[in-house]
Write a protein that binds this DNA or RNA. Structure first.
Lengths: 225, 225
DNA sequence: CTATGTGAAGCAGTTCACAGCT
DNA sequence: AGCTGTGAACTGCTTCACATAG
């Protein structure tokens, strides 16, 4: 399955969950695509990677499709998370309600600061990052969230990989190296803002020099990543 | 400039900043690309969109290039941010140190909860979201960060657009509609975890049925978005 | 000789358009 | 008739390979 399609499955799942909760039984690709913010053809192709589960001439069974997409994403298998780095962001993630509702359980919090180790955040005690291997093994952690400063991120990353974790989500503002077979996703909040700032600057430049080719302002918003 | 190239500029900027801080004067595309986690040809092509600023046979002047990329991203023009939604995530963002160091100033915090309005977070007082238009105009906000629950996000989004904001970063777990000309970027933390869960599931399935074609595990980590 | 800048080739993802099923 | 599932066309990003400049 193409990575781009995988990245859209969570969006479809949310749309399907909402519809199912509203009691809607069936929906066409056009309706679903509209709610998901993509094109109907793209939604159909994405779903086709999971097999043929629509009914021609009718559409999709919302509940059936939700269960299918949910199964592909491992919903219902309650993944154990370890959050490494209990700073502002780590704390917010630990307390975030959105995770539990999607099948993720914050099972471990780790930090290097002795002042933080031993405190309880969101009902979970903070352990010393030195015990990372033991904690990860004991609690069956399958996904690690790296929320440390950049300087510590690569070391933490190596440690969680050594502990057997194969999926990592990093918020550290730096490029991380992982061995083959480990899946790493990075989210950098400052970079997101800088990308927006680039567009703000481009718009300002455009406004200062109003006419170059077309007269009107460039059309179309920029869609998500 | 292609959106994919724009999205990498912040990475290059960080690498260049680090090198400049370390006193490094010059660097080749290969060295920079290595630090940035991309290929050398890609880095050269990305930079070429900003003009020819390297020296053939030598490489790039680190400080000069940093200033160039920084200028493209509007560093030094201190963008004013408004964070709408002062929950766990909004609070963490408001207190985050990484923004100020990159030229972003949290100039406004807004929330709908009367218990939160009037409190001070990270040195900034929380205003009522009903005053959004006034606050945005008075403080020259250029970028809005939406950190509200999904149900409130579209309304907030419409309000900030009506207030004249043209760049929005959303953390709400839903698709948002913006008019043409407004740049929207969305980051959904739960989706990121579900994408990782998908890979964890795929790996588990692979392990259960060890041989299909090649024997070894699939190579290569999955790079960032 | 070294390393950039860039057309050309290659590849992945998206969109189109229609065959096929209900 | 209506809508899915999918090969085919298309678009845009990445990688290659080399002419070019120092």
């Amino acid at each position: 399955m193409p990575p781009a399609s995988v990245a859209r499955l969570p969006v479809y799942l949310r749309v399907l969950d909402d519809l199912a909760a509203s009691g809607v039984r069936g929906a066409s690709s056009a309706e679903l695509a509209d709610l998901a913010g993509v094109g109907p053809a793209q939604l159909r192709k994405d779903l086709s990677h999971l097999g043929s589960h629509g009914t021609r001439g009718v559409g999709y069974d919302v509940v059936r499709l939700r269960d299918l997409v949910g199964a592909a994403l491992g919903v219902g298998e309650r993944s154990a998370l370890a959050i490494v780095g209990v700073g502002n962001l780590g704390r917010a993630l630990a307390r975030s309600a959105g995770f539990a509702s999607r099948g993720f359980v914050v099972s471990a919090l780790l930090d290097a600061d002795p002042a933080v180790v031993g405190t309880v955040v969101g009902g979970v005690a903070v352990d010393d990052v030195a015990d990372l291997g033991r904690v990860v093994a004991a609690r069956g952690v399958s996904i690690a969230v790296v929320a440390t400063p950049a300087a510590a991120a690569q070391g933490v990353c190596d440690a969680v990989v050594a502990a057997g974790v194969r999926e990592i989500l990093s918020f550290a503002p730096c490029a991380l190296q992982v061995p083959p077979g480990v899946v790493l996703r990075s989210v950098d909040l400052a970079s997101e803002l800088q990308i927006l700032a680039f567009h703000a600057r481009a718009r300002a430049a455009r406004a200062a020099r109003p006419a170059t080719g077309a007269t009107g302002p460039g059309r179309g918003g920029v869609p998500g990543p």
